[in-house]
Each structure stands twice: as structure tokens, then as C-alpha cells.
């Protein structure tokens, strides 16, 4: 199922409703739904903040084969930005050395099993894969 969202942080509420509907429809465990919520929110907000002037929507497409969920988050009018090229975040960084930013992509990576990036000249798509495990309940 796919839905387009306006380029605004307040849209995360509709995004959660969309993910919750998908999770309910496919019987996802609470842990998997939580992980997808966080990972997709982080990437959506990243797209909103890094490309605020674009008039295009951001689309989210969710699908599952029963073993994994695939989430495709597409900025329909974007310069190329590959979040998979962002260097690793060190969770051991002490509080006094922590700077704002960088945590969202780290969380999206940590909570899912694979993250890839596609760019076709105007559309930037991040593809997340979340393997469904019984311990995610």
C-alpha cells in the first residue's frame, strides 16, 4: 500500500496512522511496528528538513511477503542524497561531545535489517527491509 504525504513534519501523525493500518492488516508484532514507525519517521523527517523548498510530496510504500516488510520512502523532487553513505554513529560518544543530528539515520539502520538508496535523476528512494521475527513481539 502506498500513500503520498505533504512535505511537513506534522505529517508524521498521518504517517503513523498509515503504518499502524498496515501493521494491523498484516498482523505485525508490536516490536516490528514500533521499529518501522521510528525508522520511517526518521527518514521522512530527514527528507523534509534537507529539501524544504521542494513542492513535491514524499511517498511511502509498504509491502510484505510474510517474512519481511519492505518500506520504500521516495522524495519525488530531490537532489541526490544517499543516507547509506553517512558514516557510522558512535553510540559510545560521551554527552559533552554529542552534537545535534546524525542519530536518526543511525536509529533507522539499527532498527531494520537493510537500507539501500536509489536515485533516478529526480526521485530519491530509500528502501528499508525489516525481517519479521517472533522476538519482535
Amino acid at each position: 500500500m502506498e500513500r503520498a504525504f505533504k512535505r511537513d513534519v506534522v505529517q508524521v501523525r498521518d504517517l503513523f496512522a498509515f503504518i499502524s493500518d498496515f501493521a494491523r492488516e498484516h498482523g505485525l508484532a508490536e516490536g516490528a511496528a514500533f521499529a518501522l514507525n521510528v525508522a520511517i519517521e526518521e527518514l521522512f523527517v530527514n527528507m523534509v528538513r534537507h529539501n524544504p523548498e521542494s513542492g513535491g510530496d514524499i511517498t511511502v510504500d509498504l509491502s510484505t511477503d510474510g517474512r519481511a516488510v519492505t518500506a520504500r520512502i521516495t522524495d519525488c523532487d530531490a537532489e541526490p542524497f544517499d543516507p547509506t553513505s553517512v558514516g557510522p554513529f558512535d553510540p559510545a560518544t560521551p554527552i559533552e561531545k554529542r552534537q545535534p543530528g546524525g542519530l536518526g539515520i543511525h536509529l533507522a539502520r539499527s532498527l531494520t535489517d537493510d537500507m539501500t538508496h536509489e536515485y533516478d535523476g529526480t526521485k530519491s528512494t530509500i528502501v528499508l527491509t525489516k525481517i519479521l521475527r517472533t522476538e519482535d513481539a
Binding site: 523527517v45 554527552i95 536509529l107
Partner: peptide, 16 residues
């Protein structure tokens, strides 16, 4: 029920 990096950043800046 839920928190993301935005919420964590508020807590972290307050803690600092």
C-alpha cells in the same frame, strides 16, 4: 508509547 530521535534530542539537550 513512542519516542524518536527528536524526542531523544530534547532529553539530551536538557540533560546537558
Amino acid at each position: 508509547s513512542y519516542i524518536s530521535s527528536g524526542g531523544l534530542s530534547v532529553l539530551l539537550s536538557t540533560e546537558k
